[in-house]
């Protein structure tokens, strides 16, 4: 794939990939991780034989880089935050069900939400997640299992709520 072909295919995916990185590693690290991933993807672009698989290919590279970041992360706390919190929204007008999924996943403890996002946004297999995060495959297996279980419970509860909302109660 040529340089310009790469850029052309990347352009419509920019926002999506940024969101993915944001979801997995958080705001502070997202741009760093994304840039490293894109650069290495660009350098390795000839490895992609069939350009129609660009999207899954680059998704995987970004997801892998995110996993690496999580693994290398130390504990850094923002200064002056204490018990304060800020919510900054850049999205408007989306389907409520979609946003529900995101919020529900976000409510999981990080060890569960990380593997869930790596799998369902990053399309990674359990083995790949294990490699990326540097943890045993069995641990990934059980975290996914528990994470999905919790999600189902939360979605069931939400569904009841949504049903109530929609029926105007």
């Amino acid at each position: 794939m040529t340089e310009s072909e790469f850029m052309e295919r990347l352009r419509p995916l920019e926002a999506y990939l940024y969101r993915m990185a944001l979801a997995i590693v958080g705001k502070d690290d997202a741009q760093d991780v994304l840039q490293e991933a894109l650069l290495s993807a660009f350098v390795a672009r000839k490895q992609l034989r069939d350009p129609q698989y660009f999207r899954p290919w680059i998704k995987k590279i970004v997801a892998r880089q995110c996993g690496k970041q999580l693994r290398n992360r130390g504990t850094v706390f923002p200064m002056g935050r204490g018990e304060e919190y800020v919510f900054d929204s850049t999205d408007k007008g989306k389907r409520p069900e979609d946003h529900l999924i995101w919020q529900v996943v976000n409510q999981l403890p990080e060890i569960y939400s990380q593997v869930v996002i790596l799998r369902y946004l990053g399309d990674m297999s359990q083995k790949e997640i294990a490699e990326a995060l540097g943890i045993p495959e069995g641990t990934v297996k059980s975290r996914l299992h528990k994470g999905i279980g919790k999600l189902r419970e939360m979605l069931e509860a939400e569904k009841g709520g949504l049903a109530n909302e929609m029926s105007g109660r």
């Binding site: 990347l10 920019e14 999506y16 990939l17 940024y18 969101r19 946003h99 999924i101 995101w102 869930v116």
Partner: peptide, 18 residues
């Protein structure tokens, strides 16, 4: 999960990576 996360990710903010 998959479709919800995908649609959420689709509506991303404008970034300038290319």
């Amino acid at each position: 999960l998959k479709s919800g996360l995908e649609s959420w990710a689709e509506v991303g903010e404008k970034v300038n990576l290319t």
